[in-house]
Amino acid sequence: MPQIEVRSADVAFSGTTARGYAAVFNQWTRIAGLYDERLDPACFDRTLIEDPDILALWNHSPDALLGRTTAGTLRLSTDSHGLQFELDLDPRSPYGALCLSALERGDAHGCSFGFGVVAQTWQDEDNWERPRRTLTDLILYEVTITPQPAYPTTTASLRSETAMDNAVAARRRISEREAAMRKRGLL
C-alpha cells in the first residue's frame, strides 16, 4: 500500500452544499520547502474509474467525517481545471455545523486531499531552486475542507444561489402572500 500524503486547496458553499476544487492541475506549489509539485490532469483517472469509497473530512481528521461517495453525499469529477467536489453537509452533526460556519464566515476556504502515489516523475535541473515532482497516477482516499491549504489555488465555498433561483423564490413568496390575502378576502 502506498504511503498516504495530503495536499490542500480552497472551498465554497450555499445552503448546506459545499463545492469547489479539491485539487488543481498543472499548478506548481512548494511542498514543505523541499520541492515543487504539480498534478497531471490524468492523475485522478484511476480513482474515478474504480469508484472506491472516498471520504470528505474536516482538516484531514478521520473522526470528522463530512460525507462519502458511497453515501452519495460527496460527488467528484474532473474537468480541465482540476478535481471538482460537491459535498452535502449536515448541520445536525458537530463537524457539519463547524464546516458550514467556517465556510460561511470565510474562516476556511481551502481544500486538501489525501492520496497514495502510484506513479510520479521527478526533474532536477541545475538552474532550479528545488527539484520538481509531477504526480501522474494517484489513489485518492479523501478530500478535506481546511483552513490551511497546501495548494493555494484550490477552492471551497457554499454553493451560491443564482439570480434565477432568487427571482423564482421571490415570485413564490409573493404568490403565497397573495393566496393568503385572497383567503382572508383582502384581494
Rank of each mutant, 00 (worst) to 15 (best):
M1R: 13
P2C: 08
P2A: 15
P2V: 06
V6C: 13
V6Y: 11
S8K: 13
S8I: 07
S8L: 12
D10K: 14
F13N: 04
S14C: 05
T16S: 14
A18P: 09
A18Y: 08
G20P: 12
Y21H: 08
F25P: 03
N26M: 08
N26C: 07
I31E: 13
L34S: 13
D36P: 01
D36Y: 05
E37R: 03
R38V: 05
A42D: 12
R46C: 03
T47Q: 04
T47I: 08
L48E: 08
I49P: 00
I49H: 07
I49Q: 13
D51Y: 03
P52E: 05
P52W: 07
L57C: 09
N59G: 09
P62V: 08
D63H: 01
A64E: 13
G67R: 02
T70P: 01
A71F: 00
A71L: 00
G72T: 02
R75C: 08
L76I: 09
T78D: 04
T78N: 06
S80N: 03
G82K: 09
G82H: 09
L83F: 09
F85E: 10
E86M: 10
L87F: 09
L87R: 10
D90I: 08
P91G: 08
P94A: 12
Y95R: 03
A97I: 00
L98A: 06
C99M: 04
L100N: 01
L100F: 01
A102P: 00
E104F: 00
G106P: 03
G106K: 03
H109Q: 00
G110C: 01
C111W: 08
S112I: 00
G114S: 15
G114R: 06
F115P: 01
G116F: 10
V117Y: 01
A119R: 14
A119I: 02
Q120W: 08
T121Q: 11
T121P: 01
W122C: 06
D124K: 12
E125R: 14
R130T: 10
P131Y: 11
P131F: 12
R132D: 06
R132V: 08
D137G: 11
L138D: 10
L138A: 13
I139Q: 13
I139H: 14
L140C: 13
Y141V: 07
I145K: 12
I145A: 09
P147L: 10
P147V: 11
Q148E: 14
T153S: 15
T154K: 07
L158R: 14
E161I: 04
A163Y: 09
D165G: 05
N166I: 15
A167Q: 14
A169F: 00
A169E: 02
A170H: 11
R172I: 10
R172H: 12
R173M: 15
I174D: 13
E176T: 11
R177Y: 06
R177V: 15
E178M: 10
A179R: 04
M181T: 02
R182N: 05
R182Y: 04
K183M: 06
K183F: 05
G185S: 02
